[in-house]
Design a protein around this nucleic acid. Sequence first.
DNA 1: ATTAGGG
DNA 2: CCCTAAT
Length: 605
Amino acid sequence: METVVGVERNDEGKFEESGFEKSSSSLSSPKLGADPVVYKLVRIEGDGRFVPATDDEIMEVGNLLADDKIEMHLVADTGQTGGCISSERTSSGIPQLENSEGLSQSENTEVDAGKSNVHLEENDPSSAPSMNESHINQSGSVGECSNPPNELVEGQSSASAECTSLNPDFSKLKGEICLDNLSIKELHETFKATFGRETTVKDKQWLKRRIAMGLTNSCDVSTSSFVIKDNKLVNKDKEENHNNLGSDSAKAPAVRTVNDNCKDSPINCSDQMENLQAVSGERLRNSSIDDDFGAEDLNTEERAAKRVRKPTRRYIEELSEVESKEHSGKSVASTKNSGLRQISIKSNVRPFKMARMDSFGGSGVEVPYVCRVRRSRPRKNVMALMGFHPIGMSVAATLVKKALVVHNTQPNNESGDEALKARSVSEQIQQPVTTAEPEKDKQLSAVDSIDQGQNVEPKHIDPSGDTSDENVVTVPTGKGGMRRKHHRAWTLSEVTKLVEGVSRYGAGRWSEIKRLAFASYSYRTSVDLKDKWRNLLKASLAQTPQDKKINSRKHASAMPIPAAILLRVRELAEMQSQVSPNLSSGKPVASAGRNGLMEFGEVNC
DNA sequence: ATTAGGG
DNA sequence: CCCTAAT
């Protein structure tokens, strides 16, 4: 198709944990045949989360890409995956952290050794011919982002920059920006331009970093230099950290944020990337710290941009007791070794009372300590045991893998032990997660957005549907149970996308539509799409016959669905029902889709 | 795992 | 939206 943009974090140690494997397997292998493009193009949220981009986004990015492309390819030639991996491997110097822990070192080293083996095997291009395919992908993606090792920061930034085009009001911030020279006022303006909202924070440093982060969409932002060029962060002091974890972290506790961690400790950072939940956990801590500044923006901003964890796939059970149990003691104790040093470190550095924090410093901002309210239904116990979190899973998987390798040179109980740890870790991890955030992405975009036929989300307010347990209503179920039903109003753009998706791929191919047209909306399952379509259909059929009542609704706010859309829905429905019999040849509706689209556009004029 | 339908 | 049956 069009531009293929592979984006990967290029943090050191990135390839250690599940990063590499995960990206190669989950991004390329699954549906390569179906539609590779979508899987290659990824954008990274401010929090480091990967979000598959949508077609629209692809287009969007495509333009901006024109320039960087050349440069990137050049880079890709020199710093390809192989070199990258090897250098990463060695430079990612596993330990550093252990010293501060000083326990069960033997075990740690064992594990690390195992890990090394695993990754060497799997990542070494020469020894893994079967990985060719994915490797290509990697070189495409990693290559773009992987500059020579010593330029990791910039590399990552550039990678992220590609994706940043999705940020608000970017255009005017192009070129070189030197935040250092800006006054607070200017910073505020820039901030607003960048994030689309104001801030009351007067901490220059913070503002600069925040903006820099926003612009580069990277968490790898230096604390001392803020020059942004072409959406890339030019970091003047790349060398300056690396071996001061314990002392450093003890140094400036108040200002320290996740980003600082990223900068200061690559390992930490990569781990965080892998264990997003951990980040979110940390963020909780930081939230409280930030609050010490008394600036409530600090808090909200931080969270908004670094919102991490993708909503749990589903229910986190209502095991109230579990929560009240000493998760603090237990988890801290159980995580001090193995591949989760980062967690333990943090735990040490900042003993975090896993106590509930109802509100902070008078700001009234609530920072939910735990959110187990994701909908509920008794889950398979197996899941509960495995660590249901996507990430928790990956961690667990990794650990298990390591354990397996170790197994070769170690007693059996060892592996079992590891697995156990993995479990407990993911268990713990899943706790401090999610923070409910009132994310507004309601837009009452009028019909004009329909004109474009694409999602013209008024504000780029993170359509990635990052969570937020917005309206969660509990509904009594017949059998005395209570099921939580959260409602998410369908925005116009969503509907539009759905319609377009149906027109393109046909009604019924919801998983496809979900992946392609709704890639950026993490909520909205294929089932949701189906349901919505059903409703649309119903609506369109109910309305079209009698053209009278089109908008006679007095509650216009409730039902904004433009007649035009309904119209198209009906047509599509007809076409589908008619054509589908014959269309066993693939994508039948395609033509119909275009047709409908045209008509759609015309109708809208 | 995805889809279709009923609730 | 949720839930389930059927693929």
